[in-house]
Write a protein that binds this DNA or RNA. Structure first.
Lengths: 353, 353
DNA sequence: TATTCATGCCCGTACCGCTCC
DNA sequence: GGGAGCGGTACGGGCATGAAT
């Protein structure tokens, strides 16, 4: 910075003022400094700036190890939102759902100098915990009350299940991720609530991890049971695995069995058949989460109504494609009846609610 | 740090020595310091350490905006490799393939204090460029010579194409990503080479972006041509879109048309039919890239043979599943003949070469 | 010789002070 | 007198170095 100052014929202080935009500088002086900066290719040293201001303009996000598309979209969304607001994002990964793992992740982020943390990993109610020392926003389920930011995961289970019931299915089976995930639990609760509200039998839930593998394993189990006609898979990856198992077993989707997924990952519209799924507005969710965190950071005296989450924006929506249909009334139904009506762009699907 | 020093009854300097592990400290002193650190919950300030040492232990990676699984796996792999080596990773995103965009990304990373950069975005030969001032490792194609790190993208196109030719297809059509991507170009070259080596006609290449959408669009075009029996899609996402288009058009895979993808993304084994694809060893590639970069950083006097890339490890491999078969010899072939033989784990598939 | 301490410096910014009109 | 415009000094929290015990 001293070099720039010398080249511009001013003091280092003035260079700082020009670069930070704070303070009053004559236009001609500013131009001279800008010119010198360009000529010398000067770039401020962030470490020094951080040391001096005490601010890092860096946020942290705690994620799971999983390579699921949902996780990816959350990270990408947070990354983008941070960039838009002039922040950087550091991620930390937890491999287990235990509190120790979380604490370690938070410590790692703290040492990396983050000013706030977004928790996008499962936090079981028993382990309810928030890292001390900086603001936290959670993309966790609302049930525990304390987190500031929520998606209505229960609504996801409800939407999917009601859709299948409305099509005429007697009941709906559920293929889900690990029981200790709040998302999983809440989606199961929504599914359960929809079934009991309809007064139908509630089958046992199948749990696995979130991989297509496990979807396949659980799908095989369900494929053996001829009474199964409707399946709610708690993620698109699980749904894909389950559909594969059904296909292997010779049970047609949706003619014999209907399947609903969750997430609406990019390829969901291009599966055979295109997958009916519940879309989560990841981009909006992460954007809102980051905004909330930044607003906490920048004027801790909360900006009133702005802090409250617009639940309208974060509501999940059902995307109806071709993996769901009314259950076969007769005994057969093996002909490949439905050629998808998806528009050429492929992204379509009728949007409901 | 001063507080810790006082609590431990030593100087700040000694605390620094204990924490950094450099310098000689009596065991009893070390214990006292460690104890004080724990009691006070002290964590060193990275910005200050960086300012003093000039080292950030942070690497950068330049990625595209795409949300393709391949990109994700590269980032995740690099992230993991960095963590293993005690480095942090910052990512920068480019939206265009132009050199300006690259330069901006590099500047952003520079200002973030990275010590080295991994380039995992397309760099066209015309724009051949390396950011000045720090070491760079590229996950780019080898053709340009200068990058230090390569995958044999040509082999990918060759493997896929030869597989289809060996099955008896007269020729192979190609569905590819943007022509300005070196990966795309190299894969097309491999495909082209395999076709000309076999002395068969070389159809025109279809180009789009890397999304399943575009795969669908291009797939529709190919589906209209009854002479098309074998398709090489340059990514699994493209393959999925193409398969969707074929399905929409009523052309069975693999009975009427065979499809080969690239990447072996997690769901590839669970598509209907399970996708034959060329696997790239992403984890190994990124791990090797990060290691090379770090070795450059830590003892610039290259560690001899270690720097040379073990091409054995980075060789792509063909995973044969059920989306490819010999072309129908008769005029028909519409019955759904093959029930997949994939093992229950679903990850399987015969591995070739 | 084995440890420990004291001082300067890394590179910015905050704060205060000084000059001018 | 007051404000625009700019400079000087004192840090921030560590580490390197040489001096001191």
């Amino acid at each position: 910075m001293a070099d720039v100052a010398q080249a511009a014929g001013v003091s280092a202080q003035t260079v700082s003022r020009v670069l930070s935009g704070r303070g009053i500088v004559r236009d001609s002086t500013r131009a001279a400094v800008d010119d010198a900066v360009r000529r010398l290719g000067y770039q401020p040293n962030l470490a020094a700036r951080t040391l001096a201001t005490g601010r890092t303009r860096r946020l942290g996000i705690i994620l799971t190890e999983s390579t699921s598309t949902a996780r990816i979209m959350v990270e990408a969304g947070a990354q983008a939102a941070c960039r838009r607001l002039g922040y950087r994002l550091t991620s930390a990964v937890v491999s287990t759902t235990g509190i120790r793992s979380l604490r370690r992740a938070a410590d790692q982020l703290r040492s990396d100098g983050v000013e706030g943390i977004i928790v996008a990993a499962p936090v079981t109610a028993r382990d309810r915990w928030t890292p001390k020392g900086f603001p936290v926003v959670s993309l966790d389920d609302a049930s525990a009350g304390s987190p500031e930011f929520v998606t209505d995961q229960r609504a996801i289970g409800r939407l999917a299940t009601e859709h299948l019931l409305e099509l005429g299915h007697r009941t709906v089976w559920c293929v889900c991720g690990p029981a200790q995930w709040p998302e999983a639990k809440a989606r199961v609760e929504g599914w359960h609530a929809a079934l009991t509200a309809a007064g139908v039998v509630v089958p046992e839930v199948l749990h696995g991890d979130w991989t297509p593998h496990e979807g396949y394993r659980m799908g095989r189990l369900l494929a053996e049971d001829p009474s199964v006609t409707g399946i709610f898979a708690a993620s698109d990856e699980l749904a894909i695995g389950a559909m594969h198992a059904l296909w292997d077993a010779g049970r047609a989707v949706p003619d014999e069995v209907s399947v609903v997924g969750v997430d609406d990952i990019p390829i969901a519209a291009h599966l055979c058949p295109p997958l009916t799924t519940v879309r989560q507005p990841f981009a909006r969710l992460t954007d809102a989460a980051v905004r909330l965190l930044v607003s906490k950071l920048e004027h801790r005296a909360a900006s009133a109504g702005d802090d409250g989450l617009d639940t309208q924006l974060t509501r999940p929506s059902l995307i109806v494609r071709s993996s769901t249909a009314a259950p076969a009334s007769g005994t057969d139904g093996t002909h490949r009846s439905r050629v998808a009506q998806v528009d050429a762009s492929g992204a379509g699907g009728r949007r409901v609610r």
